[in-house]
Amino acid sequence: MSSLIEIHRAAVRLFARQGYAGTGIRDLGKEAGINSATLYHYAGGKEEILVAIMAACLEGLLDGGRRALDHSADPAVQLVRLVRLHVAMEAVNPLTSYVTDREVRALSAANRARVLGLRDDYESMFQRVLERGERTGRFQIDDLPTTRMALLEMCNGVSNWYHPGGRLSVPEIQDRFADLATRLVGCRSVPPAESGTGLRVARLDSEPLDQHADEEALA
């Protein structure tokens, strides 16, 4: 198990730095400190490694998203908790999130369908919350598809610029993004007690240890 974790961390470092296409199997073995035969034994080929990394990241979002939706029937609360979850995942797992967001096109058809299925399942949570908020009058939305994409892209971007020790902590970024989300859909802010400050997002096994000081963040 430890060898598989090290392989995934090595892969994330390389895929984030030089891209999936620019990374060879020997590069992965060298980065992980093992030979190619051992790498294949523990992790399979390069694409299998990428799929495993992406699936774990998306399944983490799906699990957190389900908890966000189960907490309350209020679409505003659900939206804020989804946003806080996504921000935390991107901040705590920046390289894994970066690779997951950007390397889908490198996959073969079957693997792409699997990963896109997971991503669609997650994004549909935002869709359902926005539809329910609009239907109940909780939200004021002019263009629902554009609003959904704006929310997702806003959250996805955190992995590009967040650094521990920067001007804002993860909880502070979550607070600001939650406020932006409620403004975007035209509803009042959600009380702190309902906004999801008690949930946790852990560092994924694939995330390199040297990327950040924090191993988990409030979601």
Rank of each mutant, 00 (worst) to 15 (best):
L62D: 12
D63H: 13
G64W: 00
G64D: 01
R66T: 06
A68R: 00
L69H: 04
L69C: 11
L69E: 03
D70Y: 09
D70E: 12
H71L: 06
S72K: 02
S72T: 12
A73Y: 11
D74H: 10
D74K: 07
P75V: 10
A76P: 01
A76N: 00
Q78A: 11
Q78C: 06
R81S: 15
L82P: 00
V83N: 09
R84D: 14
R84E: 11
L85I: 08
H86W: 10
V87K: 08
V87Y: 03
V87L: 01
V87M: 07
A91E: 05
A91Y: 13
P94M: 06
P94S: 13
P94D: 12
L95E: 04
Y98I: 06
V99H: 08
T100G: 13
T100Y: 12
T100P: 08
D101T: 12
R102C: 11
R102I: 11
R102A: 10
E103Y: 07
V104S: 01
R105N: 13
R105A: 13
A106V: 13
L107K: 11
S108Q: 12
S108D: 09
S108M: 10
S108Y: 04
A109P: 14
N111D: 13
A113S: 11
R114M: 15
R114W: 09
V115C: 12
V115I: 14
L118D: 00
R119Q: 08
R119D: 03
D120K: 03
D120A: 12
D120S: 14
D121V: 01
S124Q: 01
Q127H: 10
Q127E: 09
Q127F: 03
R128H: 08
L130C: 03
L130R: 05
L130W: 03
E131A: 13
R132W: 05
G133M: 13
G133Y: 05
E134C: 08
E134L: 14
R135K: 07
G137N: 15
R138V: 15
R138D: 15
F139S: 02
F139L: 11
Q140G: 09
L144S: 07
L144G: 04
L144D: 00
P145F: 07
P145W: 08
P145A: 13
R148S: 10
A150D: 15
L152K: 07
